[in-house]
Simulated assay, not measured.
Amino acid sequence: MAAKILLIEDEPWIRENVDTLLTLKGYQVVTAPTGREGLIQAMLNLPDLILCDIRMPEMDGYQVLEAIRNNRSLAAIPFIFLTAKTEETDVRKGMVLGADDYLTKPFTLESLLLAIESRLRREVSRQADIHGRLDELRSTLISVSNHEYNTPLSSIFGLTALLMDHYDEFNREDSIEMLSMIKASSLRLKRSLDNPKIWEELQQVPSMPTSFISGISRIDNEIVNQSISRINDRQDQKVNCQFDLESAQISLSETHLGIILEELIDNACKFSDGSHPIQLSGHLGEINYQLTISNHGRLFKPEDIARIAPYKQFDRKIYEQQGLGLGLAIVQKLLSLTRGSMVIESQPTGETSILVILQRELS
């Protein structure tokens, strides 16, 4: 199928000549005489590439480019300026706004075709890379989600069937133990279903805090105890954790503070070797609150810190891991939305520490 090119040019003779030449070369061409008309045509036709003049009345090429790059459905379309302006400041301005190339008038058919073909090839390569990554992510999601959903479901089904078929053969203590295992599996399954929803909600939040993310909560030993209790219920075992936190008011909703604490403590449990208790400490700064979570066990590689991303689990093929790989990504996103930050350090001795900076609510 022929590539579709949108030509935005206010000079009729240039517009008609370029239209004719590109059509003869097999391209499908849509034209517009003004910037505003060009934007409308871009949204209606979703071209594979845009050629646009800079100097146009009412809406110039820079404004067209800015509008294109701010539109989610159009933002990735290759954009080439056609211009008589060749000063470095003009070129720089266009590149800053996201232009892919410049052609200076008058240009030859050969240079026009080379510029178009080069950008279209790059776009094909980019799309192939995106599809490859999506296929890899889809495969990972299917594999991880099958494990995360089926493991607790198998436990729930198996234990429920056992209790139903042989209920009169178990004493009270055995029945309560199996019910506790069913509860733990149910909570694990709920978390596996909740975290993708939390991540998607956070993706819709603007870069500045909104009512969804903002609020005031108190960080202290009690809220840590609550987080540990939820993890205990989900894992059906006790978290070995020592903590001592200074109390403070935090510029973060209680719900989202709880998510941060639970995800970080859960992550520390997951990668701890059990030789040392998990350590939590919290200290007041002048304008922030510094929370540190430490554990002994598998090292967090320096290169992995920059690779924290949703559905990303490091060395999953080597180590058996629980979870969808969303915990640290959710924490990182929550912190970025509330002017907080997170620093991860691992020592050769096996100790990994996560320093979390939270914004205090100052009276």
Rank of each mutant, 00 (worst) to 15 (best):
I80L: 07
L335W: 12
S111T: 08
P47F: 06
S207I: 01
N70E: 10
E351W: 03
L74I: 07
I259A: 09
E361S: 09
I216F: 12
S73E: 11
D273K: 05
D90L: 04
L264G: 03
Q41G: 08
A32G: 10
V18W: 07
I278Y: 04
L65G: 06
I80Q: 07
L51A: 04
L291F: 09
L280F: 06
D135M: 11
F107Q: 09
K317Q: 13
D90E: 12
I14V: 12
V356N: 06
S154D: 07
D165Y: 12
Q249A: 14
S253E: 08
T151R: 14
D194M: 07
I77C: 04
G61A: 13
I250C: 11
K333I: 00
I8H: 02
A115E: 10
Q347C: 14
I330A: 07
A32N: 05
L120V: 03
S363K: 01
T292I: 15
L261W: 02
L112F: 08
Q279M: 09
K317V: 02
T89F: 00
S281Y: 07
S73W: 09
P47S: 03
I176D: 15
L257E: 05
K93Y: 01
E254P: 09
G26R: 04
L159D: 11
K317F: 01
Q127M: 04
M178Y: 10
F243Y: 06
A309G: 15
D304K: 13
L109V: 15
Q63M: 04
Y289K: 09
R36D: 03
L324K: 05
R218N: 07
N17M: 14
Q313Y: 03
K25A: 14
L326R: 00
S185M: 04
K4Y: 01
D168L: 10
A84K: 01
A75C: 09
Y149C: 08
S247V: 06
L245H: 06
T338V: 13
G98D: 07
N195I: 00
R69A: 05
R218E: 05
L334D: 14
R339C: 15
D129Y: 06
P310M: 08
L74Q: 01
P348E: 14
S143L: 11
V96W: 04
K301T: 11
K190V: 13
I308N: 12
E286P: 15
M1R: 13
I354N: 04
T108C: 03
I228K: 00
D100C: 05
A42K: 00
F170K: 06
A3T: 12
C52P: 00
S281G: 13
A84H: 04
G38R: 02
E246K: 12
T86I: 08
L193M: 14
T338N: 09
R298F: 12
